[in-house]
Design a binder for these strands. Sequence first.
RNA 1: GGUCCCAUCGUCUAACGGUUAGGACAGGUGGUUUUCAAUCACCUAAUCGGGGUUCGAUUCCCCGUGGGACCGCCA
Length: 459
Amino acid sequence: MSFNCRFAPSPTGPLHIGGVRTALFNWLLAKKNKGKYFLRIEDTDKERSKDEFKKQIISSLAWLGVEHDDKEYIQSKNINKHVSIAEELIKKGFAYPCYCTEKELEGQKALAKRKKLPFVYNRKCRDLKEKKDVPAVIRFKSKISGSTLIKDLVQGDRNISNSTIEDFVILRKDKSPTYQLSATVDDHEMKITHVIRGDDHMINSFKQKQIYEAMKWRVPNFAHIPLIHSEKGKKLSKRDNASTLEDYIKIGIISDALRNYLLRLGWSYKDKEIFTKQESIDLFDLSGVGKSPSKLDMARILSINETYIKTIDEKNLFEFFKEYVSKYKTAIDQSKEPVLIKSMGFLKNKAKTLEDVWNNAQYIVKDKVEIESEDKKLIDDLSKAIIKEFISEYKKLSSLSKETLEPVIKSLINKHKTNFKGVGQPLRIALVGSRFGPGLYDVILSLDKTEVIKRLNQI
RNA sequence: GGUCCCAUCGUCUAACGGUUAGGACAGGUGGUUUUCAAUCACCUAAUCGGGGUUCGAUUCCCCGUGGGACCGCCA
């Protein structure tokens, strides 16, 4: 059996973190089964679809490493086909023109609401004999009796009474196809075998199943995954902060880490927490997906990101870092690259994000040290004397290493009857511009000798 | 309001009739330390409530309760 999956976002806004996870699950299922994963841009809402969002969606997914097979499908290019299927459905008696005006329907809806009754279109035009020569929408003739069953790969058997499914619109008044029609036709044409989408699409699957059956098409497998909730416990909306991929990228989350986090949100494999890309493909299975929604947890994202930053080798980390910095901070000066690569090993130690690495690296990136006033106060006369003494000893050193520096520091500590802090703090402030920062030996060794002396002399 | 769904530590989840209910994140305490971190050790913390079924229920059934999704000529 072949596996064809797809992710079908509409380009009406920036890619949503929930959508990203849906894409990931589709991709994973396809890859695991040696099938294909397609990306289809559902741009049939002409008003709201924007090219910039389309581009953003594609680049976000690429950033995550969820690469689609083939070129992305653009739904609007297939509109003629969608319309022709609508016409076929009319001919076969599965669809009909509806002349009810929007005003009429709104009135009915308001009435239903007032009476606290469920609103379903009253099928007024369903059996109209004569055709009118006025603009009409085309509605699908939904089953009235019986019930429809969907064997959902995540939710299990789902059964609803057909009477609750209204005669939904498949062609708008302007003859453009709606989502229900377009998605069904495209999924059929693309030979999609497995549709993984958010729980909020459950009803749509019941509607679409009727279209498949009317056309005598093979119905794909459905898997409705629970939605991701905001911290408030509601469906994630664009208004929730940190809900788009971009929000995570710009604070310096690494793609592998976010992919791993999303993978574990709603899915699990025993007690395993960290999955390489390959492991996730090998181990992924729809049976491991839970049914209840999960909340976004920033602390967890940061924690996973931290383990990735610490685990990946320094060369790779630098590549991530460089890319991140050039996009969201200031591009790295070529001349600084070797030092930074060499220093990744300790710059990453205190970092949960690439932004943290960037902050740690400021003393290398910037040529001039600016000392914060809080820290400047900590430099007293004794500190200045210690710095001076350190400079003269430091100058004498023929080779620089932790082993050669340590005795110098130690002797200063002894001489001034102080502790490491007494000597280390003024030196760090002079070199880094802050009493916080990487380990002192790392700092001294990462900077050129002349640079060290220059910075120390400025105190 | 109607239809459908969900329910284990604060959070993500494991245990698919038999475990002292496990792990991870967060939180707490202590050790180490070169600031901030990191790290190590330990600790706190959950089966929503009530009925069944069963020798035995987190697990199966029913009823409550709580939460969610959908109810567009959006997708």
